[in-house]
Amino acid sequence: MQPKSRSRASARSGRQTSLSGERGFPWENIFLPAIAFLAIIVLWWVIATFFTTLMPTPWDAFQANIDYILNPFFRRGPGNLGIGWLLLASLRRVMLGFLLGSLVAIPIGFWIGLSPRAMKAINPIVQLFRPVSPVAWLPIALAIFNLANPSAIFVIFITSLWPTVINTALGVSSVPKDYLDVARVLEMPRWRQMTKIIWPASLPYIFTGLRLSLGIAWLVIVAVEMLTGGIGIGFFIWDEWNRLSLSSVFLAVIVIGLTGLVLDYIISLIQQWVTHRPARQTS
């Protein structure tokens, strides 16, 4: 009963399975997700067959995209780049914004986690801005920078702040009292308590924040690029839609999804490496 229900749960989110290396029947972990994917494709095919004006069939879409798939890194003119270049341009924006955001968010989170007063001061700001769609910051960013690219990076920066601030603060303020008692008995100075106890104890929380931040940043960049234009996977989608080339949009959706998975996986690898904890405890 147990292994069955476990692999059923993991079939729902195949990502979890591959990351945590959960044991179970391997055929269930491969075949059940495969069946679900197949069902989606069949559904798509049926709809596309009966409503030919609505969308291309999977096979038509695949054929239309074969050039993009086989040559992801072509350069055929200033605005005519392979999808690999577009992806890299988007990734670069996300990475810059995310790194800058994390550099600001982790210290702030650490600070308000340590000091209840700082928490009282900063928390209302976080609560006010957190529900705001990051795209709403775009006009403000454009007004400041006057350029599309820095504005997009700024929006990603804002996006990356909130989950990391909140989770870092949560991690720091919920370090088990037992660990702090050990530090006190060993007469650790306050500074060393922070670096040797509080920092490593809150790392799993910080990584939760980082993973959430990066995930949302990857969602937001598509919307931002649709608005700012230029080179990027988001603008590619909008551009292809304007050219009535829905096949390319389907391709972009799949590429964005896969990239998101890979980003999340990379950060979980970094987490395992940084927290020095056996793999099974992360994720």
Binding site: D178, D181, V182, E187, L203, T275, H276
Partner: peptide, 20 residues
Amino acid sequence: RKPGADRMMVFQQYSLLPWL
């Protein structure tokens, strides 16, 4: 007056640091 390593504790819940 304060905690000190001259009176070291052994805790019921072990209190080991899980990242070490």
